Simulated assay, not measured.
Amino acid sequence: MAGREGAERSRLERYSILLDIAGTAHYNNLQANYFSLGGDHMENTDLSFYIHKLSNHTDRISHAIYNRKELDECSLTSLFVLDFLYAHRDQRLCQRDIEDEFFINRATASKMLRLMEEKQLIRRTVSDEDKRSKTIELLEKGLELQRKCGAIRQGTEEALGEALTPREIEQFKAICRKMLAHLE
């Protein structure tokens, strides 16, 4: 526990330093954009801005593809968790694995998993190896939803990739993996 909290504190300290540096760099970048555009307006060209917009579009596309009522009022994150559990069904996964994979905090993961358990999508049982931990098992109802999740993923992937060549898609994924590896 202390190791994880220490790593989280270290990550937050690194972010804090990056924010201090980024704040100055961002201000300088905004000034440069302002003056290069003739001083009449500033366009936001930050990576975070583009990533945020893509995330919003991804959510819209996914929500257009699936009917939340049909899928037992599951959030997109819950569907992706079901997909993750299915992909790793041969492993013993616990809440921490979900937290790490989806970069969510303990409280968020706990609430989401509790709701999924109430909907009989998963079962949590005390781990044989560590009595403080619960392993997560996909139930039949969860498997049914996971199959539908595959169609949602495929439809979202197709919509997002329509404007890109296969090579550009691979390059984009490589850049995303590199950024994630750096931030994690």
Rank of each mutant, 00 (worst) to 15 (best):
His41Pro: 01
Phe102Asn: 02
Cys94Arg: 08
Lys53Val: 09
Glu168Tyr: 01
Thr125Asp: 04
Glu170Tyr: 07
His41Glu: 01
Leu85Trp: 04
Tyr86Arg: 09
Tyr50Gly: 00
Ser10Pro: 01
Gln171Ile: 15
Leu71Lys: 00
Thr135Tyr: 05
Val126Trp: 02
Asn105Phe: 06
Tyr50Glu: 04
Phe49His: 02
Arg132Ile: 11
Arg96Lys: 14
Leu18Gly: 02
Tyr34Val: 12
Asp100Ile: 15
Arg124Gly: 03
Asp46Arg: 14
Gln120Tyr: 12
Ser78Thr: 05
Gly38Tyr: 01
Arg60Ala: 04
Arg167Trp: 10
Gly6Ile: 10
Ile21Thr: 03
Tyr27Gln: 11
Phe84Lys: 03
Tyr15Gln: 05
Asn56Lys: 15
Ala163Leu: 09
Tyr15Lys: 07
Lys69Met: 08
Gly23Cys: 05
Cys74Leu: 13
Thr156Ala: 03
Ile175Arg: 05
Asp40Cys: 14
Ile152Ala: 04
Lys173His: 08
Ile51Asn: 00
Lys53Arg: 09
Ala64His: 09
Leu82Cys: 02
Ala151Gln: 08
Lys178Cys: 07
Leu54Thr: 13
Ala7Pro: 06
Arg167Ala: 09
Asp90Leu: 07
Gly142Cys: 02
Glu129Tyr: 08
Lys111Phe: 09
His182Gly: 03
Arg106Ile: 10
Cys149Leu: 04
Leu183Lys: 10
Thr108Ile: 02
Ser110Arg: 15
Leu143Thr: 05
Thr77Ile: 11
Asp72Phe: 07
Arg89Thr: 07
Glu162Met: 12
Asp40Arg: 14
Asp46Glu: 12
Leu37Ala: 10
Gly155Asn: 04
Asp97Val: 03
Lys119His: 11
His26Met: 10
Asp59Met: 13
Met112Cys: 00
Ser16Asp: 04
Ser10Leu: 15
Phe172Ser: 02
Tyr86Cys: 02
Asp46His: 13
Leu139Asn: 01
Glu8Ala: 15
Lys131Gln: 00
Ser36His: 14
Ser48Asp: 08
Glu73Thr: 02
Arg89Phe: 09
Arg167Glu: 14
Gly6Ser: 06
Glu129Cys: 05
Met1Asn: 06
Arg177Asn: 11
Cys176Glu: 11
Glu184Phe: 02
Arg89Pro: 02
Asn67Pro: 01
Asn29Val: 14
Ala22Lys: 07
His52Glu: 12
Phe35Val: 15
Ile122Lys: 06
Arg153Gly: 00
Ala109Leu: 04
Thr58Lys: 08
Leu79His: 01
Ala107Asp: 09
Ala151Tyr: 10
Ala107Met: 06
Ser78Tyr: 00
Ile17His: 06
Leu145Phe: 05
Ile65Cys: 01
Asp128Glu: 14
Asp20Phe: 08
Glu13Phe: 15
Glu43Gln: 12
Ser110Tyr: 12
Phe103Tyr: 13
Lys119Val: 06
Thr77Leu: 10
Gly23Trp: 06
Leu164Gly: 03
Glu162Asp: 03
Cys149Trp: 05
Met42Gln: 03
Ile169Arg: 03
Arg96Phe: 05
Ser16Gln: 10
His63Ile: 11
Leu12Tyr: 07
Ala64Lys: 07
Arg96Ser: 09
Ile175Cys: 06
Ser75His: 07
Asp100Tyr: 13
Leu12Lys: 09
Lys134Pro: 00
Glu162Asn: 05
Phe172Asp: 01
